[in-house]
């Protein structure tokens, strides 16, 4: 009898651990993408393009591994880190398209975002098959990546419940956390961050105070491109272990929902992503623990979205978008 109870306790403990481990590995990349969106939107540029940016970033990372991955020693993690770097550079470069359309070419920002997504899906799909066919001679629409290693910090992992945070995490999760701190600092404490926020609330005043609105917005959109690329690469390495069109699973739209939920602020968005990630992995484990058929996991997957909608009813009252969000900056209109 006592052994049965102990067994149950261990199983219960394990489930809680798995919920936290899986939840974090989904929530942190989502948060990084959402912070990218926050940078862009706080500077006054609506960014529905996150989905396309993360896909293009992941494509660049995947391409790097496909082209140069074999030159490294087997088991080396260097290509993975370089792939992340490539994803950030690629995402930033691709986001120039959105920046150019919105800031320079006075396009409607919502439309620009949607178009950037459409082009990204078409372009990466086309390039992936084309490159696979012409460089590797294989008809495939994906780049296979290695599996990211997982890390456990032994001394911390023994802490009850919270120990799971330090168990079996991907290296990119640790990098994400460090990035969050730095990005929070840049946004809220640095001169650039203050100007960025001013450009999103009152670009004319920011201009008069000596900020360069166009340049600030360009940089902000590129930030969002780089961060989305990073987040996309995380998903490519954790969920699918390859780059394929399935990377466009809607994480970018989810990130937009999270950042609006978080009222365009980094820390509340962190909370939103955590709730979302934990609800998601919790729902999965629930289906598993109740030994239901796999089709129930579809039903369980609705839980995070229902939860988010309910929470929004209580928390959106004071939500306020940056004042100049979506407006084209015209110097002559003072």
């Amino acid at each position: 009898m006592p052994t049965a109870i102990a067994g149950g306790a261990i199983a219960g403990g394990l489930i809680a651990d798995v919920v936290i481990i899986d939840g974090l590995s989904f929530a942190l990349p989502l948060l990084i993408i959402a912070i990218g969106g926050i940078y862009s939107e706080r500077s006054g540029v609506t960014n529905l393009a996150l989905e396309g940016l993360l896909g293009f970033g992941a494509f660049c990372g995947g391409l790097f591994v496909a082209l140069f991955g074999t030159r490294f020693a087997i088991g080396s993690t260097a290509p993975m880190y370089l792939a992340f770097l490539c994803a950030m550079v690629g995402g930033a470069a691709y986001s120039l398209l959105h920046a150019l359309l919105c800031v320079q070419f006075r396009a409607n920002q919502v439309i620009s975002g949607v178009v950037v997504n459409i082009v990204s899906v078409a372009l990466t799909g086309f390039l992936t098959s084309q490159i696979n066919a012409s460089v590797f001679g294989a008809p495939s629409n994906k780049f296979v990546l290695s599996v990211s290693p997982r890390v456990t910090i032994n001394s911390f992992s023994q802490i009850p419940v919270l120990g799971a945070v330090f168990t079996n995490f991907y290296p990119f999760e640790a990098i994400s956390l460090i990035m969050v701190v730095i990005l929070w600092y840049i946004m809220n404490r640095s001169r650039y961050g203050m100007r960025l926020r001013a450009c999103g609330d009152n670009p004319h005043a920011a201009d008069a105070a000596g900020a360069h609105v166009t340049r600030t917005r360009f940089a902000a959109v590129m930030f969002s491109g780089a961060l989305s690329g990073f987040g996309g690469m995380c998903f490519a390495y954790s969920i699918s272990n390859n780059f394929s069109p399935s990377i466009y699973m809607g994480a970018g739209y989810l990130a937009i929902a999270a950042l609006i939920f978080g009222n365009w602020k980094i820390m509340p968005t962190f909370a939103a992503c955590l709730i979302f990630g934990l609800a998601r992995s919790g729902a999965y484990q629930l289906v598993k623990a109740m030994e239901l058929s796999s089709s129930f996991s579809d039903l369980a997957m609705t839980i995070p979205y229902i939860l988010t909608l309910l929470l929004l009813i209580f928390f959106s009252r004071s939500n306020r978008a940056p004042r100049a969000l979506g407006e084209i900056y015209d110097k002559s209109k003072r």
Partner: peptide
Amino acid sequence: FNINEVVAAIMLNYLFQYTISYVINT
């Protein structure tokens, strides 16, 4: 409730997608 229509619509998109796929599959 001042819920941004973009967020509500995205959430409902997923809600419908998963619920309907459950009913169809079962």
